[in-house]
Design a protein around this nucleic acid. Structure first.
Lengths: 357, 357
DNA sequence: TTGTATGCGTTATCAC
DNA sequence: GTGATAACGCATACAA
């Protein structure tokens, strides 16, 4: 029937071990600088007292926080949360806490970021959100925090910091080459949001690849989307209503690809028999949909891990890795069952060419 | 070409405003206790100097952290990350940071939790993971932190703290009643993991409901699963191989339901024509699958919000809400297109009874 | 209503 | 290799 026991402090440990507080502190942070005897004594005392270092006090003294802020656009999106998971793993293994914030929270984002960065509650920032406001950019400069920021997945060309990403242009090329190799020449593209860097890059790469292959892509076949399930449905409705339909569709996200396919099936159009579909991301469900989705795989664990490691390198002062350099995570085409030769070619399978990469 | 400007401290603001540091501090924490004149002066000085409170110093002094730890089993699972998002929203609005940790990280979980709780880097804990080790339980007791813990979604009966959850038994009953109302009497259940509280509760409720309806459920029809996509495929293979097949399946998660359906379609079995399927969760994809999934909707935003609000109430000392009470978030049956009357009844639609709830 | 002075628990700088 | 002691930046009890 007592109050809670007061948390033992470093002083209590020092007392129990018969040493000074300085020695206890050293045992915690640079054990190699103590004699083996005292080191043992101290650790025993720590065990005995149940001592835990007080983070606030340590942070105040060392001017570090032991925490990293991760900015995620839409936490509810499994693509991002999966990356967050692998970031969390690496940082936790290195003694850092992960502070997470959904950057799509109504407007509060900027305030939170600048607060965290300026009040020292965070040592660095990994952002999966490529939209960086002028205010935030200025905040980073003022706080001299430029070197403690890393982009992951998305990025902004206006902020000269390291960027971990997939090679989106290459992925797009893989998708288009795959379709062309199957014999498709009429290919549509459901894009990401215009304001999103990934949407833009993939769309531009799509146009470039089609041009390189000498394909004649109707303007109508570039269908604006936003990565969402709803956008895939809308795109399907648009394509099914077209006079001259494309024979294949490259969707900028798996979510759009999956809902696109569902909508087609619902309206009696078969995938890949009537139309081939390629997605982007390789989310978990892609392998389990019916038919299983052909898609471009992004290495989500790798993206998160690389971003975390890059940031750690900066925090620990590895100068070599400075500046706005780009690190690409592996990307690959996963051929499943939503792509096949177009109907027109199917009668003469001999014509299905090998990839002309 | 200078070093970064040193962060202004409270002393600098005091100087600029011509007041004492105490007054500045009060302006920050209890502005109403200042005269309007000085308050304005202070805020102007804050603006002018670009002052931000140093969190570490404040935390050390107030013995609070301004942060909440959220324990998520499998951050990569969109069901959880979506809840995390809504927790984040409420807590951020109340000035708390959210520290997140994936509790399925290999073993590190216990260490991290006890560290966070004992070293004061966190004011409270919301856990979406019902597995609470003896060590963690003891840690909570020792740190006298029992009143700063809230369960969300999952829970453990061995830890007497508030629990926000869906009424899983009711949801299960809704699913079974729905199928029975359609005329099904041979219903299978793909369960969650045996060690998971949700898996157990839903399975028990399923058996109870079937008994209440006088259904004869073969032991084989209770198929062990684990909420995953792979488990749905395995379950489909088992059911399709059965001599006497059930006419309907209640899956303990949407993930299993969706992959179950895909597998059925792949093997030429039509849903709902040959077999009806009900899921649990209502994840985003449920509405967009083909056919759209009939399922039990959990109110994910509500679950997160309620958990965050409950914890805030405790932190702010509302005694009324103490102890291991349970708060249920809304749950409902979402009828879509994966359920219909069983084949045997379809010839005589007159027999399709109304729900006998 | 405002100012003064102290301490929160650590780590870093000196001595020894 | 170890000990004494002064910050770190803020909030609050107490005094005015």
């Amino acid at each position: 029937m007592r109050m809670q026991k007061a948390q033992p402090k470093i002083k209590d440990v020092a007392h129990a071990a018969g040493v000074s507080t300085a020695t206890v502190s050293r045992a915690l942070t640079q054990p190699e600088r103590l004699s083996e005897a005292t080191r043992e004594k101290v650790f025993e005392a720590i065990q005995a007292t149940g001592y835990r270092v007080n983070r606030a006090a340590r942070n105040l003294r060392t001017r570090r926080a032991g925490a990293i802020l991760v900015l995620v656009p839409n936490l509810g999106n499994p693509f991002f949360s999966h990356i967050l998971s692998s970031i969390n793993e690496v940082l936790a293994a290195n003694g850092y806490s992960v502070l997470v914030f959904d950057s799509q929270q109504h407007g509060a984002s900027e305030q939170v970021v600048s607060d965290c960065l300026l009040n020292g509650s965070v040592d660095g920032l990994i952002t999966l959100d490529g939209r960086v406001s002028d205010v935030t950019r200025q905040t980073l400069k003022n706080a001299n925090m430029m070197r403690q920021v890393v982009f992951c997945c998305e990025w902004s060309d206006h902020l000269p910091v390291p960027s971990i990403r997939s090679d989106n242009a290459l992925g797009t090329q893989m998708a288009v080459d795959h379709l062309v190799a199957l014999g498709h020449r009429a290919i549509a593209h459901v894009t990401g949001p215009a304001e999103n860097i990934l949407g833009r890059v993939r769309k531009d790469a799509f146009s470039a690849c089609c041009a390189a292959h000498g394909l004649d892509i109707l303007p109508d076949w570039i269908i604006p989307g936003d990565f969402s399930l709803a956008a895939g449905v809308a795109a399907a409705d648009r394509i099914l209503a077209m006079g001259t339909r494309p024979t294949a569709v490259f969707c900028a996200s798996d979510a759009m690809a999956l809902s696109f396919i569902s909508r087609c099936q619902q309206r009696g159009v078969s995938v890949p028999h009537d139309i081939s579909v390629v997605g982007f991301d390789d989310i978990d469900l892609a392998a389990f949909s019916q038919p299983a989705l052909t898609t471009i795989r992004q290495d989500r664990p790798g993206l998160g891990r690389l971003a975390a490691e890059e940031l750690l390198a900066h925090l620990h002062g590895d100068q070599k890795s400075d500046g706005p350099h780009v690190i690409y995570a592996p990307i690959s085409l996963i051929e499943r069952s939503t792509t096949s030769a177009p109907a027109a070619l199917r009668a003469e399978p001999g014509r299905v060419a090998k990839p002309a990469i």
